[in-house]
Design a protein around this nucleic acid. Sequence first.
DNA 1: ATTTTTCAAAATATCGATATTATCCAGTAT
DNA 2: ATACTGGATAATATCGATATTTTGAAAAAT
Lengths: 226, 226
Amino acid sequence: MAIQMHTDPSQEPSATQRAYLAIRRMILVGELPPGEKLKIEKLRQALDMGGSPIREALTLLVSDLLVERLDQRGFRTAEISPENFSEILRLRCQLEEMALRESLTHADHVWEDKLVISHHRMMREPRSNVERFEELHKAFHVNLLSACHSPVLLKFCNQLYDLNIRYRYLAGKALNYSKRDIGKEHTDIMNAAVDRDADTACHLLLDHYRNTGAFLAKHFTIEAAE
Amino acid sequence: MAIQMHTDPSQEPSATQRAYLAIRRMILVGELPPGEKLKIEKLRQALDMGGSPIREALTLLVSDLLVERLDQRGFRTAEISPENFSEILRLRCQLEEMALRESLTHADHVWEDKLVISHHRMMREPRSNVERFEELHKAFHVNLLSACHSPVLLKFCNQLYDLNIRYRYLAGKALNYSKRDIGKEHTDIMNAAVDRDADTACHLLLDHYRNTGAFLAKHFTIEAAE
DNA sequence: ATTTTTCAAAATATCGATATTATCCAGTAT
DNA sequence: ATACTGGATAATATCGATATTTTGAAAAAT
């Protein structure tokens, strides 16, 4: 997360913060399609604020690789491509494996509790509420890595996670994930993690990512061929 | 780098660009010490421009982990710590190894020429001109990895490189690097890379980083104990 | 003495207006 | 027709001013 979060919920967020979260969401879920020009004036009106917080939010999104900045020519949402997708997947597997292994070596019972709770919440949420489910799904994966003592690595993983989730949204709801039992995959990962079995946990996690990746890649190539 | 560079040098850079480069430099070389409050008004006067480009530059620097943003309480330069330093070093070794191996598998003669040239320029530059030397030193290391087809990974490596260089500047000019022959280390790395000998090149590169790292870590602990 | 409250000074965040710069299209020349 | 040029239009980048918010210190209360 590029923005510092409030710990005090009574504080209402700054305009920049609101703009950041709103635009970020719109890009992730595909309301703002890849390559779309982001006109300050339009966003200004849509979010009902001045130009400064919009510009600042967009600048923050540049660092998340969700927005591109063209000097003197404004902002646009990041382009997508099969190469970019496979790069994200590859990097994600490598960095998350590092993070997961380190997380498991430091994992204590507080971590374990958080993990179990986030797993439970995710399993309870109906898949129909897509955005809410994705939120809980992300929370589960973040918690898995959360005992890793490397904030920079976690930041990278987080960024890559978001970039990947964007591709998942863009692929559309058409994703029934064929015959996979996603619930079981998560449960197995959690169990291996709770057992501190790093090899198994990493293996399961990366398979989980790669299976989804292969599925999405197929989807994109079909779409590109049409 | 977060900012889009101009390919056309006739264009003069935007105020934001100027501010970004200037402030970034000041942080890297230590003119703006760690944890320093970055007051818009002060920077505004120092760089002779309005507040907007300053804010935007600072926001870009947040993504580089060189500046921290505290919602409603402005900006400050990132703090340093021994933990942060060793994290940077560790991550750098892991990511640069990945990048170097991939770079070497794709390395062609254009890459090789660029590498040799940047090595030559670095070796010619007197160490007395610190900032200029560091620029060339960075160019050499960037070129080593430049054939890697993973822009995101390269971006990460670049960021980590800058974070590390900052620690080197902060440690001060007191660095004579004891008995090491830095020039030879670079030449050896280059030769292994030109031979496409990934194992040797990685080994030498990581030793190069770890030796400097150990040296700096010693320096920091001495300083912290004083 | 320590904590709490209050209030002024300082700094930030944001807005609206303006100066700059890019874009697009019509008109002209080839 | 096609390629270039000029100028109107739209969009961006930047500024200066204002509204909020934080900070720090003095006064009041425990």
